[in-house]
Each structure stands twice: as structure tokens, then as C-alpha cells.
Design a protein around this nucleic acid. Structure first.
Length: 865
RNA sequence: GCGCGAUUAGCUCAGCGGUAGAGCGCUUGCUUCACACGCAAGAAGUCACAGGUUCGAACCCUGUAUCGCGCACCA
């Protein structure tokens, strides 16, 4: 390869290597491979989706696991795909239709509308797939799936038919969460409670049988008064027991005479509000249940879009629910029944997608009684499936313990149509006369118009995306990487579906990522504009930069406060690695099979190799425990600190002269670079592949070059001693404001013979004019005691003895404080008696070290006089 | 109300029983022949608070406070 450029330019190489990997089929999984399997299914992003930082985090993690598994000799399947995302996609296409053609989906009709959605999907869908490729994701794109693929869709319907046959799916008229914008029912999980500031409206109603006696009612929803069917009190509430059985006059709509019974029901909390509850069976879940108990009529005054209908009376019909609220309050005030409005905070359920308050609504829907709930709980409780971090186990268990039937029907067009047929003359007719099957029973039968909840298809993702051969090889999958926000939506349901249909758990481990927030800790959102576009970041800093930068600050299970500076650091790190390799390349071609153990090694080389061994172990441990940021940090520390700052600086003196160390140092560099690239490849695939090939370490992809194994090189503490000593000497120089580029004659009284061998290294690191060894302290020098001996700097013309004396005094004070600290501890009998022997010994050693240093400092001081 | 997390240097975080750490930022010096996306030196912390356990606590236990997240309630 030609000489490397001065700075790493990711844009130039990323696309090249990505297509190279694809062309060579490096990401393609082979079910017939004899290698052990490693598999991941991607959490399918919405087909409408565009890449967010959350996706970057999530998919980089999966890519890291997949790539490392390939390096450790596994046959890897990382199965990608997208989710049809019922509501989201239908909304997008409807909006486009309204904007471009001023039409609604009803203007087109069902078939034509679905045709348009498919067209949209083919044209604009799956942008995110290309974005994932830019990130470097090593998915097996030959197996890309979509939740509406023909085969997959059929499976979804088969599962419906099967569960129906087993009696676990049933149709029922129930209170459901209704989204007045999307015009569909939602599951409980799709309702997000939000704290709202509103008002508690107090109004009074007269007891018909006791004129002049009034009951005061507190409500947050006066717009539903017109649908009230009763007034309820707690039968044990002494204030009101005598009134049970009597009636009140309903105030709204005005001019309509309606009498409501006063009923007693245990559900009423007499501490809350006034202890009197208006009962609106059609528009509140609790009220509906009270209504059932007391056989109350259900009067629905809302249209599906939450405007009021004729049953609400002329004065309200046609109004939006919030307008109606204001109007209802005005009317109550007008007729003198409004007592007060007091500020009130309560939680209101919002539709996850449309972000508007949902309406409890009585409607006919399909429900699922979840299968295998007990087994699903046990699987996690007994660690058949391991959660990382494990605290999510409790959340999962709690949800399953209190699990409610799942409302799976949606009043949408885009999705898997419910495989149920009704006689045409009686569409949605009597329960007795329906057929649950995929194909039409023939003329005279009409299919249910609803589709299934999107999650009713994604819960099969882990196993229905694989054909039998792949299933045999790659299922159960190795790990699932996902956000904790879909633990109920997806993770729990996938476990149940998998247990029901494969008899196995769908994955062995689940890694829950953190949520990415902005610097102020707020969630990333479009409306806040605090969500940087990952593609911009990739263009600016390279895919490796964003991957490494983000992963380094993504500790297990903690939310991540995002700061672009961290991506800058990722980019800088890549550049550092690049330049380290560039330095090596300047010494001539690399030897891909370099073996340092065949050479005489300097103490620095030996110590570096021991640190490499330690790093390999640290990285491996990190993978065992899914501690991704630890791995990144370990690599960062080793590459930047041990390799660049220390070893390369030392190596320079080996290369400057005809040092006998040259061969050993070259071998050490080559050996280490090779392993650094292998270790770093999962985190930074592009730059490592570029360097691997560019430096001639291999002609095949680095991805199949294996994974480094820790050897048994011996750490050499002399290395550390040299660096610490050099640092102390530089400190001395810095104290006197001597610029680094000023070359000086340094002297050193070596503490051991070996120190003399390191003269070139020391001289180089100190940037000295000369370095000479002496047996005794030279006069007129500033002294700096270190573990390798005392280092001297000439005072004459540079240093004022008085200043030096002051500096030494400062040092002495510090050292004395340390000695005092250790001495106090050692003086404690209880410490000496109770602490382990090695701890005590370590303290004694520390004390001795400090005392030695003190003696040297004092000697230096007296030498000045 | 119940549960879970967080609280360590100006910022972002690591450390989870034995001398308080990193990166950034800051100060100072350096066009040192890999890198200024860099090098070197430095300043900077009663580890939220209060008790307890221990020879020894940032770390373990018990409370408290503040922030955040679930679940429940939500007239």
C-alpha cells in the first residue's frame, strides 16, 4: 500500500469496504455450516422510520456482537427487516393523500388505498435499511424480511386461527381505549399516562324527592354529564346513605327532563372529591362496571372522532369534546348549579401515536387471552432467559403477574386482516355464525373489516422469519438487543409466542439498552429539535467515530446523555490509531506473522505485551457481561495510553539509532497492531479493515482473521518506573517554566544498574541535550528523586536556588502529609491486628517509599546551601 | 401509593471494602522528524445528607432529600 495519508478520512473508505464485504458474502449466514451458530434478529424498525441515535446505539450493539461472533469462529445470522407499523404507515399515506389529492382513504376505497400504501412502501419505505448499511451493520441482507411478506402474513393469520380454535381469542363488547384521531381501538400498552393540569368542576344537583336538598358532585369531565345514568355514593358513607334510592335531576342538556337514581356502590371512594360520583357508563371504565352492576343504560354521546352526537342534545351536538367541556361549564354557571372550579392535576391516558387523550369507549373487539404466561414467567425467573441488566426481570415479572387480555383488533386498513368471515347479509353478525379461517368460505361471506395490532405480527418475529433449515441451525437466537420501552410490547409477547409455537424460548439473553437523551436529560424528539441526524454525524465524523464515541459512553442499562463532543472523541480516536499505524509503516513493511517471543525484548516491549494480554482478557470479560462501554474504554486506554503515549515514544529511540532492539520492537509493534485491529474491529469495522489491508496484514477480510488470544508475556514494573520518573522530571522542568523545546544537560544517579541501559530512552523522553550518569549528587542542581534514581537539572543560569528551595519545601510538605496519613494508620493496633497481612505489608511498604523520598528531598535541599 | 434507577472534579461518567480516577473543558508551555483530530505539565472533589456495620466505607446496611422512569390510582 502507498503511504497513509496524514489524517484518516472515513468518507473515502467506508463505502468501498461495505460493498466489498457484501460482494464477498461475508454477512450471509449458512445454515449448513459446521461452525457453532450465533444469531440475532433485528428489532424491525418501522418501515416509515428514519435512523435515530437510538437506532444507532441499538444496531451498533448488535453489529458488535455479530462481528465479534464471526471473529470467534461462529456462523452468524443477523436477520434484518422492517415492520409494517399499522397506524404509523397508514397515517403517513393518508396525510400524503390529503395533501396531494385532497382525498381520504374512504374516497379511494379499501383496495385502492392499500394499493397506494404498497406503492408508498416500495418507493419510500425502508429508507432506514440503507441508513443501517451506512452505519456498517453486517446484517444478512439476503434474508431481509417484512412483517407483511406473503409467507409471514400467512403465519400471522394461521396463529390467529389456531388461537381462536384453542378458545384463546374471542370477540367481545368491552370498554377499550379508543383513539379519536386514528379512529381505532388500542391496547393498554399503547396508552401513555400523562400528568395534566386541569380543573375539578364542582356542581350541585337537587334531590327530587327532597326539594331544597342538593348533592355536590366533583368532576373533571363535565362534557359527559349528558351521558350520566346515575349518581353513586358509597353505601357506607354516613353522609349519603339515607339518599340511596332517591333521584336527582340531571342538569344537562338543559331543557331535557332526566331523573337519575342515587345508587350505592362500593367502588366510590368517599375520601375523594365530594364522595359523590356521577356515573357515565359509556365513557368511563369504572362507571361502566358500576353500570353493569346496577343495570344502568349506556348512552354514548360521542362520535368516533370524539365530537358529540345528537344524544348530547342540540346545544352540544357537533362540538369537539374540549369545546363541549367549556360549554358544559358555562351552562352550569348559567343555570346557577356550578359551585366552584378548582385547579386539579390528574393523569390522562394519551394515545402513543397520535398524542391525544384516548376515550374509553364501549365497542366490539377481538381479544386474546395470552398463552404460556406461567411458562414465560418461569423462563425469566429461572434464567432460561437472562436479562441484562437483571433489574428488568422484576418489571417483566410484575407485568406478567397482572396481565390483562390483549385487545388485538384495529379499525385500520393497513395490516393483517382478521381471518374471520361473516354471512354477508349479517356482517359482524351473531357469534354463532362466523367462520375463522384464512380463505374465504365462498360467496355470501364477508371478511371482518378489522386488521390485527402490529405487535400481533411482530411477536412471531424471532421464529417465523426463518425457514426450517435456518430455524434448525439458528433458533433459539443468541441474544436480543432492544430498548426497555418495548419490554411488554415485544419482548414479553415474543417469549410467549415462541413458547407456544416452538416450545422453546426465542433467545437466551436480552440486552436492554439505555435511552439516549440530550444534554439536559430530555428525550430526543422531533418537536424539541434536539435530535441530531445520525447521517450528518456519520458524514462529519465517520461511521466508526460515531460508533466508538457513542458506545464508549453507553454503560449497561443507564440512559445516555448525548453530546456531540463524544462523537468528536470517537473520530479523534480513529485518527490516533491511524497515525500510530502510519508511524509503524514509516519503518518499512509489516510482518503479518511477527512473533515477539522469538526476539530479545526490551523491558518496555515486554511490559506492553503483558498489557495487551490484560486488555484482551478485559475485553473478553466485557463481552461475557455485555459491558460494552468497558470494552471501548479498555481499548481506548490501551491504544492511546499504553501503545501510543508510551511504547511508540520509546520505540522512537530504538529506531533513531542502530539499536539492537530494533527487531524486537518492530515485532512487538506488528504483533500488537494486528491484535488491536482485531479487537477493535467490532466497534470500528471500517478503519480496521482499511488498515488491515493497507498494512498488508492480510488479503482476506479482517473479519475472518480470528480473535486474539491472551498470551503469557511478563509485566515489567521497571517500565512503569521509567515513565513515572520521566513524568516527575518533566514536572521539575515545567515548574521552572523551561519550555519543552529547550534542550538541557540532564544528570541521573541511577538506583540500579539496568537504568543505565535506558539512557537513549530517557534522553529521548526528556528531550535532553545530554544525559549523563553520576555516582554522587552534583552540586548546584535541582534534584528530583524517583524510583529509578535522582534526576538532576543544572541550576546555573536557569534556576534560582531560592526558588528551588521553596519548591522542595512544597514537595516535602506534601510528602510529610502522606507519611503522616500512613503512619496514623499503622499506629492503630486494631488495624495491624485485624487487617489482612498483605494489606498491612502494603502500607508498610508505602510508608517506606514515602520516607525514602523525603530523605532524598531533604538531601537535595541541604545540597543547595 | 408501590417498585426501579440516579446523585463522585465546571461537564459527561468510571470506580462498588484497603493511597479518590478518566475524557472533555480550564491554566501554562510546545510548528519534539505518527497524529494540533496532537504532545507535555498543572489546577480542580468534606464521593447528596444523616445514622449504622467494620480495624478501615465513595463502595455494605437503614433512613432522608432531590431528579428521572415504570406500575397503580386518575369522580
Amino acid at each position: 500500500m502507498s503511504e497513509l495519508q496524514k489524517a484518516y478520512e472515513p468518507q473515502a473508505v467506508e463505502e468501498k469496504w461495505y460493498s466489498w464485504w457484501i460482494e464477498r458474502g461475508h454477512f450471509t449466514a449458512d445454515p449448513s455450516s459446521p461452525k457453532p451458530a450465533y444469531s440475532i434478529v433485528i428489532p424491525p424498525p418501522n418501515v416509515t422510520g428514519v435512523l435515530t441515535l437510538g437506532h444507532v446505539l441499538n444496531n451498533t450493539l448488535q453489529d458488535i456482537l455479530a462481528r465479534r461472533a464471526r471473529q470467534t469462529g461462529h456462523e452468524v445470522l443477523w436477520l434484518p427487516g422492517t415492520d409494517h407499523a399499522g397506524i404509523a404507515t397508514q397515517t403517513v399515506v393518508e396525510r400524503k393523500l390529503r395533501k396531494e389529492e385532497k382525498k381520504t382513504r374512504h374516497d379511494l376505497g379499501r383496495d385502492e388505498f392499500l394499493k397506494r400504501v404498497w406503492e408508498w412502501k416500495e418507493k419510500h419505505g425502508g429508507i432506514i435499511i440503507n441508513q443501517l448499511k451506512k452505519l456498517g451493520c453486517s446484517c444478512d441482507w439476503t434474508r431481509e424480511r417484512f412483517t407483511m411478506d406473503e409467507a409471514y402474513a400467512r403465519k400471522v393469520q394461521e396463529v390467529f386461527v389456531d388461537l381462536h380454535a384453542k378458545g384463546m381469542i374471542y370477540r367481545g363488547k368491552r370498554m377499550v381505549n379508543w383513539c379519536p384521531v386514528s379512529l381505532t381501538a388500542l391496547s393498554d400498552e399503547e396508552v401513555i399516562p400523562k400528568n395534566q393540569r386541569g380543573f375539578f368542576y364542582h356542581y350541585k344537583v337537587e334531590v327530587v324527592e327532597k326539594p331544597g336538598t342538593f348533592l355536590e358532585i366533583a368532576t373533571t369531565r363535565p362534557e359527559t354529564i349528558m351521558a350520566d345514568a346515575a349518581v353513586a355514593v358509597n353505601p357506607k358513607d354516613p353522609r349519603y346513605t339515607s339518599l340511596i334510592g332517591l333521584h336527582v335531576r340531571r342538569p344537562l342538556p338543559t331543557g331535557v327532563e332526566a331523573l337519575l337514581p342515587i345508587i350505592g356502590d362500593e367502588a366510590v371512594d368517599f375520601e375523594f372529591g365530594t364522595g359523590v360520583l356521577k356515573v357515565t357508563p359509556a365513557h368511563d371504565k369504572t362507571d361502566y362496571e358500576i353500570g353493569l352492576r346496577h343495570d344502568l343504560p349506556v348512552v354514548d354521546i360521542f362520535n368516533p372522532d370524539a365530537t358529540l352526537n345528537d344524544l348530547a342534545g342540540d346545544e352540544f351536538a357537533g362540538l369537539d369534546r374540549f369545546e363541549a367541556r367549556t360549554k358544559a361549564v358555562d351552562k352550569l354557571r348559567e343555570i346557577g348549579l356550578l359551585v366552584k372550579e378548582e385547579p386539579h392535576e390528574n393523569n390522562v391516558g394519551f394515545s402513543e401515536r397520535a398524542d391525544v387523550p384516548i376515550e374509553p369507549r364501549l365497542s366490539e373487539q377481538w381479544f386474546l387471552k395470552y398463552p404460556k404466561t406461567a411458562e414465560a414467567r418461569d423462563a425469566v425467573r429461572n434464567h432460561l432467559i437472562r436479562f441484562f441488566p437483571d433489574r428488568w426481570e422484576k418489571v417483566y415479572d410484575h407485568w406478567l403477574e397482572n396481565i390483562q387480555d390483549w385487545c388485538i383488533s384495529r379499525q385500520l386498513w393497513w395490516g393483517h386482516r382478521i381471518p374471520v368471515w361473516y354471512p354477508t347479509e349479517n356482517a359482524k353478525g351473531e357469534m354463532g355464525n362466523v367462520k375463522c379461517q384464512i380463505e374465504s368460505p365462498g360467496d355470501g361471506w364477508t371478511q371482518d373489516s378489522d386488521v390485527l395490532d402490529t405487535w400481533f405480527s411482530s411477536w412471531l418475529w424471532a421464529h417465523e422469519t426463518m425457514e426450517p433449515a435456518a430455524l434448525a441451525k439458528f433458533f433459539p437466537t443468541s441474544v436480543l438487543v432492544t430498548g426497555p420501552d418495548i419490554i411488554f410490547f415485544w419482548v414479553a409477547r415474543m417469549i410467549m409466542a415462541s413458547l407456544e409455537y416452538t416450545g422453546q424460548v426465542p433467545f437466551k439473553d436480552v440486552y436492554f439498552t439505555g435511552i439516549i437523551r440530550d444534554k439536559q436529560g430530555r428525550k430526543m424528539s422531533k418537536s424539541l429539535g434536539n435530535s441530531p441526524d445520525p447521517l450528518d454525524l456519520i458524514a462529519k465524523y465517520g461511521a466508526d467515530g460515531i460508533r466508538f464515541g457513542l458506545l464508549r459512553i453507553a454503560p449497561q442499562g443507564q440512559d445516555i446523555k448525548f453530546d456531540e463532543q463524544q462523537i468528536v472523541e470517537g473520530r479523534n480516536f480513529c485518527n490516533k490509531l491511524w497515525n500510530a499505524c502510519r508511524f509503524r509503516q514509516m519503518q518499512g513493511p509489516l510482518n503479518a506473522n511477527a512473533d515477539p517471543s522469538q526476539h530479545e525484548l526490551s523491558l518496555f516491549a515486554s511490559d506492553l505485551l503483558a498489557r495487551l494480554d490484560a486488555t484482551i482478557r478485559r475485553v473478553n470479560e466485557g463481552y461475557e457481561a455485555y459491558r460494552f462501554s468497558d470494552i471501548a474504554q479498555a481499548l481506548y486506554d490501551f491504544v492511546w495510553g499504553d501503545f501510543c503515549d508510551r511504547f511508540i515514544e520509546v520505540a522512537k529511540s530504538d529506531f533513531a539509532t542502530d539499536s539492537p532492539r530494533r527487531a524486537g520492537t518492530l515485532a512487538t509493534l506488528d504483533y500488537t497492531i494486528k491484535r488491536i485491529l482485531q479487537l477493535l474491529h467490532p466497534y470500528a469495522p471500517f478503519i480496521t479493515e482499511e488498515l488491515w489491508n493497507g498494512l498488508g496484514l492480510g488479503t482476506e477480510s479482517l473479519m475472518h482473521s480470528g480473535w486474539p488470544v491472551a498470551s503469557s508475556f511478563q509485566a515489567d514494573p521497571r517500565s512503569e518506573a521509567v515513565f513515572v520518573a520521566v513524568s516527575q522530571a518533566r514536572n521539575l522542568r515545567s515548574t521552572y517554566g523551561i519550555p519543552v523545546n529547550k534542550r538541557l544537560p540532564w544528570q541521573l544517579t541511577p538506583a540500579a544498574d539496568w537504568v543505565k541501559n535506558e539512557a537513549p530512552v530517557l534522553s529521548n523522553l526528556l528531550h535532553s541535550e545530554s544525559l549523563t550518569f553520576c555516582e554522587t549528587a552534583p552540586q548546584g542542581h535541582a534534584a528530583c528523586p524517583t524510583h529509578i534514581g535522582t534526576i538532576y537539572l543544572p541550576l546555573e543560569g536557569i534556576i534560582d536556588p531560592a526558588t528551588e528551595k521553596k519548591r522542595l519545601n512544597g514537595e516535602i510538605t506534601k510528602v510529610e502529609a502522606e507519611i503522616e496519613k500512613v503512619a496514623r494508620k499503622l499506629a492503630s493496633e486494631t488495624f495491624v491486628q485485624n487487617a489482612p497481612a498483605d494489606v498491612v505489608a502494603e502500607h508498610r511498604q508505602r510508608q517506606q517509599d514515602w520516607l525514602n523520598r523525603l530523605a532524598e528531598l531533604q538531601r537535595a535541599q541541604s545540597g543547595l546551601a
